[in-house]
Design a protein around this nucleic acid. Structure first.
Length: 1004
RNA sequence: GCAGAAGUGGUGGAAUUGGUAGACACGCUGGACUUAAAAUCCAGUGGACAGUAAUGUCCGUGCGGGUUCAAGUCCCGCCUUCUGUACCA
């Protein structure tokens, strides 16, 4: 019987779906069925965004790996949770809606259907009964719910956890905010209990907003007026929008932010207790960017600045020990003091500079490190320790968004300050002992001693730091501080296709909709674009007001600002829905709670999470933040949600290029080139990879002559003034037209585009047309996307699964080349044959006792595959299976005792064929939860070893010796060997190294 | 610039604590079966040199050093590629 993968795979996929084979039971249900004894194991994939292009072969790489692991754990007796869903809010669907008017929900639905079909074909063991979609109101109800919880919480720094905002109100009522140590906005004023109690409700709300974990704030954003939207840094190229090239300006907007900075230290500390890849941890560590230093105040000298008020410039510095080296200060151009302190004389220049800077995007400013620019404000500050006057400058190398937006410049110790000082001819005092600073600044803190610094003289870095922070605090100039690079995360988007905020506005102040009226569903709109007056797309909705009496969404016309209020027009960002989905899977159909405590206490956390490293500082940081918040508020039992994480490598595409000849008409006059113009209307000529144009000059010219006008032809034939110049260019061919030998399917290529219809092809000697290949990112525009469906169709899902694993280590990125797939396919056929040794290939296994060799092959394989899966080395276990099947085939093994366990260990990798063989072996239930065979070392015990014998480290021959020999006996046996004598040629060895069971090395 | 990962045959890759470099697979070459092709099966396959041959010698894991009886693996110094990040005071 033939290995008919099409039939086999379709049958078992149907069986799994009908029998809900992979449904993970929650404890309550299990108890009823009396099978609670299994330990839990949670295997999670990063869920996909369902794009219109469908799944490509890069997606399943991680999914196959996690599926193997999940299936393996089922064999090991675990109750495995292995869910899947869709991150279905997102820009492409909205973009499509803008272009076509098609509602994003419809596009999304269709795309999900495609994804599901594709996923099903690969035979994943997902528990689809738990599927979530972030754009489903039943799901985003809980995203909105978490938002409300965040709004109703503040961060208590003393307890180092989030607490209910009502606790804070109680404290305010009793004693004001003087003793509160909480994460909050910078501009919070102190107040007493009396103050608080005399505040109006509105004032109270305004103050509380400054403490809430999600809060409204003025944020500087990249605003693109023409698109009516805010752009991310990477959506801006050369100061204009990537899409359409519209101008972009910096603008302040009121937006929701998440107070993630409150969690900076815990996000850092938590990295120590999770098993995530080091590079990923490194990038989170860097992103959080902890630095220790001090805040120091420099008073502005009022007389010089022409101001009457006392102003201070506070700066954050990591090197307060170098404070005696300060020779000037630099403010970011956006710094609020700039306009106040600038003198009349400098005003014009400063204003021009500030204006010029505002036009440049942050990215732009940062990319351009070489140009040094800045302007003197005319004002001076007082050095707190020396009492000297220092100039105050502005410069765009200082960023408003980091620290305080101002620096104390120490040119002798910081290269940027140094460059700035050199450029503008400012003083560079040296405060380092015996260090030459004539060429560059001295940033080496570990090997320098402070000098010219009063009480710090002679101290090394660490001691100087301690002393100066003490002095700064003693004298009231500032305090020691830990600063973080991490900023609060902007949580508003001016988009349609995202979660609506459960927020309405009363007198401009945000109010939460009561939890019990969630979800607040997305309204219908006429257009998905921003409104004409620059409001987000939800501004187009006509029924988008909240009635606080009826507690429902009503028409905007009813807004009276007494009982009916306008709703928030922004929507949540892409990462909102993905920040808690892993917990929702534990109890995804629960309509009363985000998840039951029973479910979350049973499943606890994710045991294995697989996904791409591109989410390192986005999803993977925000989700840890939300998890810690949920933990603080007692909703989840763990403050880190994923014990182990693996990044699968990217699969790159192998693009195919064809060489096209491009003809130009060159006109000459008196032997000199006068003009060159392209020739249109000539069918393209393509030349195969190994052919040279030079050999086809005449052919090409004759080809061109057939299509040019008669005048040109006449001039060409009768004068020397015209030539046809031929160049070549590389153009992408769709990879589906190319076979594994790099040969192009010419007919398919011709039909691909109308302009190729009449193209001519210069072939290789063997009549084929060869393309060249290059590795590039897999993308639609490069025509190198390969869909898994094609592979499933041609070779089957089991082949695809094996092949994707066989490509190489999971974590490495690798190019997709299908040339090796026939190897795994023929492996499956060989496997099938092992069980079909009957007449005419009929199924047959014998019940005879296996031989020693057969047992050895089986147990060697069990051991290796088990080790490989535990180490996520899936590529090597595929080789192991191949070796096992090759060896068993050579042994003509057909013993049930061997072939049954073999089917089980292969099942995680190739589940369809394994199920089929299992049922042929006479079993009536699925193989998926059968116990994994137990490795028995006794089958691998050897009595002898073939020792490699080396001379001076070079292996020369092998000698078979019993394993129970002593070192001396081994040495004697080796020395007695005739080849040893040959090698030594009479020399007496200096030393003989014997490692029993391993190697013998003769030296000398 | 900084951080991280990687560099091994024609190709993807293997070598788990330093101990036989190139497992397994693709490709290629030759052969069997076939009218033929596909499929399948068998044999060979890092390079150079010597030999009719069995075989032997030398060179070989990005480059240059080092440690060791022994280095793809450990140490020092470089080079290249990829990924992430961007003046962080």
């Amino acid at each position: 019987m033939e290995y008919n993968f099409r039939e086999i795979e379709a049958n078992w996929q149907k069986y799994w779906a009908e029998n809900e084979t992979f449904k993970a039971e929650n404890p309550a249900l299990s108890r009823a069925e009396g099978e609670l004894n299994k330990p839990k194991f949670y295997v999670l994939d990063m869920f996909p965004y369902p794009s219109g292009a469908g799944l490509h072969v890069g997606h399943p790489l991680g999914y196959i790996a996690s599926d193997i692991y999940a299936r393996y754990k089922r064999h090991k007796g675990f109750n495995v949770l292995h869910p899947q869903g869709y991150d279905s809010f997102g820009l492409p669907a909205e973009q499509y809606a803008i272009q076509t008017g098609q509602h994003p929900a419809i596009t999304t639905e269709a795309n999900i259907a495609t994804y599901r079909k594709q996923l099903d074909k690969i035979g994943f063991s997902f528990d689809w009964s738990r599927e979530v979609r972030t754009s489903d109101p039943k799901y985003y109800k809980w995203t909105q719910w978490i938002f409300i919880q965040l709004f109703n919480s503040y961060y208590c720094k003393d307890a180092d956890q989030a607490r209910s905002i009502s606790e804070l109100e109680e404290v305010f009522t009793a004693e004001g905010n003087t003793r509160i140590n909480a994460a909050c906005d910078d501009d919070v004023q102190t107040f007493t209990a009396e103050d608080w109690n005399s505040f109006s409700e509105e004032e109270k709300q305004k103050i509380l907003l400054k403490y809430r974990l999600t809060y409204l704030s003025e944020t500087e954003v990249n605003w693109c007026p023409d698109l009516g939207t805010v752009l991310a840094n990477d959506e801006i190229v050369n100061g204009v929008s990537e899409r359409g090239g519209h101008p972009v300006v910096r603008k302040k907007m009121k937006q929701w932010s998440m107070r993630i900075t409150a969690y900076a230290q815990r996000l850092l500390d938590g990295l120590n207790k999770i098993d995530w890849p080091q590079p990923l941890k490194d990038s989170q560590t860097y992103w959080i960017g902890r630095s220790e230093g001090a805040m120091v105040s420099f008073p502005v000298i009022p007389a010089e600045a022409g101001i009457s008020s006392r102003e201070n410039i506070s700066v954050f510095t990591t090197r307060p020990d170098t404070i005696f080296g300060v020779s000037f200060m630099t403010l970011a151009p956006e710094h609020e003091l700039v306009s106040k302190i600038t003198t009349e004389a400098q005003k014009a220049e400063v204003e021009a500079y500030v204006k010029a800077t505002a036009k440049r995007s942050e990215l732009d400013r940062m990319a351009d490190v070489k140009t040094i620019s800045g302007v003197f404000t005319g004002a001076y500050a007082l050095h707190p320790f020396t009492g000297e006057k220092v100039q105050i400058w502005i410069g765009d190398y200082v960023l408003a968004s980091y620290g305080t937006g101002a620096v104390m410049a120490v040119p002798c110790g910081d290269q940027r300050d140094y460059d700035f000082a050199k450029h503008f001819g400012l003083e560079i005092p040296n405060i380092f002992q015996d260090v030459d600073i004539s060429e560059e600044a001295n940033a080496d803190k570990d090997n320098s001693i402070i000098a010219n610094s009063d009480f710090l003289n002679g101290l090394p870095y660490k001691k100087a730091m301690k002393r100066i922070i003490y002095e700064i605090e003693q004298r009231g100039f500032g305090y020691g501080k830990i600063n973080y690079r991490l900023r609060d995360a902007v949580f508003s988007r001016q988009r349609y296709w995202g979660e609506p905020f459960p927020v309405y506005y009363k007198n401009g102040l945000p109010q939460m909709i009561d939890e019990k009226y969630l979800p607040l569903e997305l309204p219908e709109v006429e257009k998905y674009l921003p409104t004409e007056d620059g409001k987000p797309p939800l501004g187009n909705a006509t029924v988008w007001a909240w009635d606080t009496v009826k507690n429902e969404v009503v028409s905007n016309e009813k807004i009276n600002n007494e009982t009916v209020f306008p709703l928030e027009l922004n929507t949540m960002p892409g990462w909102a829905g993905s920040s808690q989905y892993f917990n929702r899977y534990m109890d995804s159909q629960n309509e009363d709670e985000i998840f039951s405590q029973e479910a979350v206490n049973y499943w606890q956390d994710v045991d294995l999470y697989i996904g791409g490293s591109e989410h390192a500082t986005g999803h993977l940081l925000y989700s840890r933040f939300w998890q810690k918040f949920m933990f603080d508020r007692g909703f989840v039992p763990k403050d880190e949600y994923a014990k182990k994480l693996i990044n699968q490598g990217m699969i790159t595409g192998t693009s195919a290029f064809v060489k096209r000849l491009d003809a130009q008409l060159h006109k000459y006059e008196d032997g000199k080139l006068k003009s060159a113009e392209g020739l249109s209307g000539i069918p393209a000529i393509f030349i195969s990879e190994n052919k040279k144009i030079q050999d086809y000059q005449e052919y090409i010219v004759n080809h061109i002559k057939k299509y040019v006008s008669e005048e040109i032809l006449e001039e060409f034939n009768n004068t020397n003034n015209l030539r046809f110049n031929v160049g070549q260019s590389k153009i992408h061919s769709d990879v589906s037209f190319v076979n594994s030998h790099d040969e192009l399917d010419i007919e398919a290529f011709k039909n691909w585009r109308s302009e190729f219809k009449n193209a001519e092809f210069i072939l290789e000697e063997d009549g084929t047309f060869k393309v060249s290949r290059e590795v590039e990112k897999m993308s639609k525009s490069k025509y190198n996307v390969v869909n898994p469906d094609q592979i499933c169709e041609e070779y089957g899902a089991d082949s695809l699964r094996l092949f994707e694993m066989f490509l190489g280590p999971l974590e490495q990125s690798k190019p997709w080349k299908t040339s090796g797939i026939s190897g795994v396919y023929s492996f499956l056929k060989k496997l099938w044959k092992l069980y079909h040794s009957g007449e005419n290939g009929a199924f047959f296994v014998s019940d005879d006792e296996p031989t020693k060799d057969e047992f050895k092959v089986l147990h060697k394989t069990i051991k290796k595959v088990e080790d490989d899966i535990e180490n996520f080395s899936f590529n090597t276990s595929v080789s192991t299976f191949m070796i096992a099947v090759n060896e068993l085939t050579a042994l003509k093994c057909n013993k049930r005792t061997i072939l049954e366990p073999l089917a089980i260990i292969i099942e995680p990798y190739a589940p369809h064929i394994a199920e089929e063989l299992w049922s042929k072996l006479g079993h009536t239930t699925s193989i998926s939860t059968v116990d994994f065979p137990v490795f028995e070392p006794k089958y691998l015990v050897e009595s002898s070893k073939e020792y490699p014998v080396s001379f001076n480290g070079k292996m020369r021959f092998k000698i078979e010796l019993p394993l129970d020999l002593t070192k001396e006996e081994i040495e004697a046996a080796v020395m007695a060997h005739e080849k040893t004598k040959e090698q030594l040629q009479g020399r007496i060895p200096k030393k003989v190294i014997v490692v029993p069971g391993k190697i013998v090395n003769v030296v000398g």
